[in-house]
Design a protein around this nucleic acid. Structure first.
Lengths: 385, 385
DNA sequence: ATCGAAAACGTAGACGTTTTCGTTTCCGAT
DNA sequence: ATCGGAAACGAAAACGTCTACGTTTTCGAT
């Protein structure tokens, strides 16, 4: 067995094994008191970046300026107890040396990262990406970064994402629950922590967390009211899962309008969908077969409304003459449809903006007021109703 | 003048002023050798979170287990040189004590954050949010976080975002250039750094950075070819700014098809838009007035195609009989239109996924191969052409 | 000139990890 | 029993910043 040689003295006599490093045997030459690993691969590892890549640190500046790190820190943070000339000189040096503070180190000491976490069910749905856009915009102008996580409407992923985000790294959390989330223990666990949370759009009812909501109740009421005024009597409504605040509120608004107009409520005219294409089509088929006199449909989103209209056109059912169709959300697609979609504009972007604003406000102020804010929307009347 | 009292001995005799802290006067009692600040506000600052909020650290575990921090580290990282029992015990302790590693500290030492930066022109355009979705999905499964920045199609914001992201905190950068970006110095500056960059969808030509592209050339060629086969001769095309690779490639494909079919190229049939609604409408009006025999339009996106179709319908121009319209991107809206939109599916989501994959691969491998990958798309034939 | 306040600066942690370089303990073979 | 190698563990430095606590210097008032 070939003995190991010391790279210094080139002898094998005094070699001792000295522990493992990353599963590689480490040796020690007692003579030279030198530790080494016989790692052939190590030689190949040529760094692909220059030495010059090393970031300038405060220490470099301190040395260049002939002061201590503390003084550099004071200068760069515009503290008062520093000589103006020293301060200026250091700041100039920082610029010429192209100093960039290490955000990680700053975050580690300051215990704040200037980063918001956003958990959102999906990015491919217009309303969510629009809300995200609003969130990101407000955050960016306030100097906050945004980390996004998508739950893909899966409860487990929502839970995992919350864990991962709350774990560290974020100053605040914005969350829009997945459609399959009906228990909220995973959120409650984090509620009394330092990190503020804001729920938006889809919120957990009865949880002591600030909320930013769409005008679901008033919106649904306005829509229903409008349909009735136009002459509709049998109005079907597409809703989400029963646990969602969105579902409950829109239902309330719908019922309010019916009551006001003295129309009997029929729960068979409601359908709870999971936002999948099939569930929408199934509900539609179901209504059409059970209610020949159906004369209006309030959809849960503009996308579903578009699907419904397309399907009705296929079946040669006239929209709006035979059946009026109304959407919810005012997405881009509405204006491109034929007939153009009448819809309730929930001001999706504003919801994102407001959520972001509220969260940042709570981060900065340190207050944890349980605020519920409803972003007002408005009915957009076009051709489909 | 009321003299300052020492909070310890309650006397005023030995008080010395001792520097400033955050612009507040600090005092020192020479007798008690105690430093203090007369800060009335401090008392009100009741922390809104419990003491228990303090995160468990490795030190806590080490103490509980009666070992050193090093051993805890070894256990949690599954290193080999540790007794299996000790390791198990420590890992159990970590679980029961609900230990969560501090990612900031880890990142600081490891010089890696497991975070990707994404710069994207907008979030409210379907194709971008779809690409982002793909990016985020792949990143998440690979254990990477995603920070998003939107440039809102502004060059300055793109530059600022790159600076902010590259500065620190990210292991890799994904960038889709803003439409108003025609110089790329801001990117070149960062190219020889440690941090890998991948451009996607809209890329800078001639920059030594890996790229993931849509099948613009072949796609445009296929579309044009199809239109010609269907009988079109005067085919107009909506393009983006001339600097974009997207524009150049689609133009190439368009010309290829014309050449192949021996149709004369007329540059007046091209329009370069900035994606704004007006620019689309202006181009359309311009074509209609100058080319009465116009029989096909290749749009730059499905959205624009939708707008064009709607506009043409308003003008009572039949689509596809008089003018065929083809989109690009295969967004959701296409299927909802009347007539349903024929479009080239660029596989937007795949582009995002591939970009993310390539970037992560480069991060992990450490290689910086300048790869250009074109994601194949396919022509979706529906009713508008 | 002297003294004290104020200004200006420095030292030495701390933040929570990982890693390097050690040492100590254990154990089987002689 | 002893010795060498392996296994198991620890001390300390490092990552780059901030800050509590000191010290030194300056300077105006006496």
């Amino acid at each position: 067995m070939a003995r190991v040689k010391c790279p210094i003295c080139n002898k094998t006599e005094n070699i001792l094994k000295a522990g493992l490093i990353r599963n590689k045997q480490r040796y020690n030459c007692k003579n030279c008191n030198y530790h080494f690993i016989t790692d052939k691969k190590k030689k190949n590892k040529i760094p692909f970046f220059e030495k010059s890549d090393k970031q300038i640190t405060m220490l470099d500046i301190a040395r260049a300026a002939g002061v201590s790190i503390t003084t550099v820190s004071r200068a760069l943070n515009n503290r008062s107890d520093i000589n103006v000339n020293t301060g200026r000189k250091i700041k100039e040096l920082a610029v010429t040396m192209n100093y960039q503070p290490n955000i990680l180190a700053q975050s580690l000491v300051n215990r704040t990262t200037h980063t918001l976490g956003v958990i959102i069910p999906s990015l491919e749905t217009t309303i969510f990406s629009t809300m995200l856009s609003g969130i990101q915009e407000v955050a960016a102008t306030a100097g906050y970064r945004v980390i996004i996580c998508t739950s893909n409407e899966k409860h487990e992923r929502e839970v995992a994402n919350i864990q991962a985000l709350m774990n560290n790294m974020i100053d605040g959390l914005l969350i829009c629950h997945s459609i399959h989330t009906s228990t909220f223990e995973h959120l409650r666990v984090h509620m009394n922590k330092r990190i503020p949370i804001v729920q938006f759009y889809r919120v957990a009812v009865g949880l002591n967390v600030p909320q930013i909501l769409a005008e679901d109740e008033a919106g649904a009421e306005a829509v229903t009211d409008y349909l009735i005024k136009k002459g509709s009597q049998k109005i079907a409504m597409l809703l989400g899962p029963k646990e969602l605040s969105l579902t409950q509120n829109r239902l309330k608004g719908y019922q309010n309008a019916l009551r006001k107009n003295k129309i009997k409520f029929d729960k068979n005219l409601l359908a709870h969908v999971d936002f999948s294409d099939e569930s929408v089509y199934t509900s539609l088929d179901n209504w059409l077969s059970r209610f020949p006199e159906l004369d209006a449909i309030i959809s849960i989103s503009d996308k579903s409304a578009a699907q419904i209209i397309t399907k009705l056109k296929n079946k040669k059912i006239n929209v709006p003459k035979k059946i009026r169709v109304v959407g919810f959300g005012n997405e881009f697609v509405g204006e491109m449809l034929d007939p153009k979609l009448t819809t309730f504009d929930t001001q999706t972007r504003h919801i994102g903006e407001e959520s972001s604003r509220l969260l940042i406000e709570q981060i900065i102020s340190g207050k944890r007021d349980i605020i519920t804010k409803v972003v007002p929307g408005k009915l957009i009347i076009r051709d489909s109703a």
